[in-house]
């Protein structure tokens, strides 16, 4: 029983893909994963394997073909939009439409599920926004507009916005693209810090496999054979990473936990 309470998100016989009137394109099927509360979870897989589709399904952007996704043991389609916005926040790959928003305004939009009909911020909302800015260390950028920010700063602001939404779980779609090596590590390290300090569950998709192995509590690996999730060291021991990519170019080195180019 205790074990069950510890699970924030689980899928049951989930099939993902696209359905039109004529045909169904199944991208992944029979997916059963359990994500524990308070963990940092990385989702990795080759290009085109269906990471985005899985994330879109987990976040209710698209419907599952079969099976269910449950958050806090409640099926996703039973949530109404506002309630879901209170348990799940997103950081997407797409850019914000209006670059003229100040960082403060951007982060404050995260409070929308809680504000009244015209979106007024209460003192509690303001505190939550300030808290989020402080946790991400961008309080000094508060009055800058988004078009003045670097990619790394913008990504931090987007994470602060998701934090201000005050949800149990945050899902990020490739938060490290466009960033240099330092900022990739910085953002993922920041996510790790957030899970430890706030107890939130954070799931992100990424191509930074070596960083994910080092930082994540759990790694979800998508391969052609299916979806597995476990602690990174167990996955290495099982040789899961070897099946991630075609073996003609790169091989996984168990000792260093990273990929090497074949000589």
């Amino acid at each position: 029983m205790e074990n069950k309470n510890n699970i924030i998100l689980n899928t049951e016989n989930l099939s993902i893909g696209y359905a039109s009137k004529k045909e169904r394109t199944i991208i992944g099927s029979n997916i059963n994963i359990n994500l524990n509360r308070g963990e940092l979870i990385g989702l990795i897989g080759a290009n085109g394997i269906g990471k985005s589709t899985l994330l879109r399904t987990l976040t209710n952007v698209q419907k599952p073909l079969e099976g269910t996704v449950k958050i806090n043991d409640k099926s996703l389609h039973k949530y109404d939009a506002i309630d879901l916005a209170k348990v799940l926040s997103l950081v997407l790959t797409e850019a914000v439409s209006s670059k003229n928003l100040s960082v403060f305004e951007l982060v404050a939009l995260g409070r929308q599920p809680y504000t009244n009909w015209v979106g007024s911020l209460s003192e509690y909302d303001m505190n939550k926004v300030d808290e989020a800015l402080k946790l991400i260390n961008i309080t000094h950028l508060k009055h800058k507009n988004c078009f003045e920010l670097s990619d790394g700063q913008l990504q931090k602001a987007m994470i602060a916005r998701a934090l201000a939404q005050d949800t149990d779980m945050i899902i990020l779609d490739e938060p490290t693209t466009h960033l240099d090596m330092y900022h990739k590590a910085y953002i993922l390290k920041l996510l790790q810090k957030l899970t430890q300090e706030t107890g939130k569950t954070i799931l992100f998709s990424s191509h930074e496999i070596d960083l994910a192995i080092q930082l994540c509590d759990t790694v979800v690996v998508m391969t052609n054979d299916g979806v597995v999730s476990d602690q990174p060291c167990n996955l290495i021991a099982d040789g899961v990473f070897n099946s991630l990519f075609p073996k003609d170019l790169i091989i996984f080195d168990k000792k260093t936990g990273s990929f090497k180019v074949k000589k």
């Binding site: 916005a85 209170k86 997103l90 997407l92 797409e94 914000v96 939009l109 599920p113 979106g119």
Partner: peptide, 24 residues
């Protein structure tokens, strides 16, 4: 228009974000 103020503000983020904020 006045009743749309809140949704207009969330639309500034783009439709997918607006949806994730609980906007219909």
């Amino acid at each position: 228009s006045i009743f749309s103020i809140k949704s207009l503000n969330s639309l500034l983020l783009g439709e997918n974000y607006a949806k994730s904020l609980g906007l219909n």
